[in-house]
């Protein structure tokens, strides 16, 4: 016989719901506790690891990069704040802030020469020269990390990839695809000619000269009419540092 709904039935249903909710809450709490415990364990393990390998992290750029990678995987950013236990533990925040300041200095100092675009490798080299007093090595990875922190300042620091190389931009120049392709082409010799741009990229001469003129105006290129073949060359200080250009032309 089918029971008709009555007050008792409703009460039973409500009680059951309460029971389920209670149980659910319990399970959730258990899970959270477990999670918290795991996190605490993990954190202490990570701290222990960091403490144990403190010197390696500070001195060895490869190790440092791997440590960063590990932290990123578990969602910890040791650079997120200058306070907190990471900074206290490693002094690693200061390290990157210092790098950041030095990178800004180098970019400003070389801006009139390269128009505010500098090869990451050259930047690293100049950075090492600048820091020669302390023995801690600086890797390109460190540079990139320090630059990514500079972005927060909104000063227009950015890393762009041109071909295989990375360039660091410190002025808000907009480079379009054409400009990038020219820069990429220039990486081989440090310079390009209009003919090369037309030939290699299959562009019309108008397109080539337009793009080259813009790069000139932006201070990213310099003309060279001195070669004996009489063809104008467009040099790009940002892809070939002055110091390494000697070999490029002989």
């Amino acid at each position: 016989m089918r029971r008709r709904p009555g007050i008792g039935g409703l009460q039973t249903a409500a009680a059951a719901r309460d029971q389920y909710r209670l149980l659910g809450e319990n399970v959730a709490k258990l899970r959270t506790d477990l999670m918290k415990e795991q996190l605490a364990t993990f954190r202490s393990q990570l701290e222990e690891f960091a403490r144990k390998h403190k010197n390696d992290i500070r001195k060895n750029p490869t190790f440092r990069a791997q440590f960063h990678e590990m932290c990123a995987k578990v969602g910890v950013d040791p650079l997120a704040s200058n306070k907190g236990f990471w900074a206290e533990l490693l002094g690693i925040g200061d390290f990157y802030y210092e790098l950041g300041v030095q990178i800004v200095e180098i970019c400003l100092a070389t801006r009139s020469h390269n128009g505010g675009l500098i090869n990451l490798q050259e930047l690293c080299m100049l950075l090492r020269q600048k820091r020669k007093t302390d023995r801690e090595a600086v890797s390109e990875d460190d540079c990139l990390r320090a630059i990514s922190k500079l972005k927060i300042l909104g000063s227009g620091f950015e890393v762009i990839s041109v071909g295989k190389r990375k360039l660091v931009r410190s002025v808000p120049t907009e480079l379009n695809k054409d400009h990038n392709e020219i820069l990429e082409l220039a990486q081989a010799q440090g310079y390009v000619t209009v003919d090369e741009v037309e030939g290699r990229l299959s562009w019309t001469s108008g397109r080539a000269t337009d793009a080259l003129d813009t790069l000139l105006d932006e201070g990213l290129a310099m003309i060279d009419d001195g070669h004996k073949d009489g063809k104008r060359r467009y040099w790009f200080p940002c892809v070939s540092s002055i110091s390494s250009s000697v070999g490029a032309d002989i």
Binding site: S112, G115, L216, D217, M222, I223, G226, R233, W235
Partner: peptide, 14 residues
């Protein structure tokens, strides 16, 4: 040693 420095540059800042 950088060749373009031997050509007068057309852009004012440079």
């Amino acid at each position: 040693n950088y060749p373009p420095y031997f050509t007068l540059q057309p852009v004012r800042d440079t």
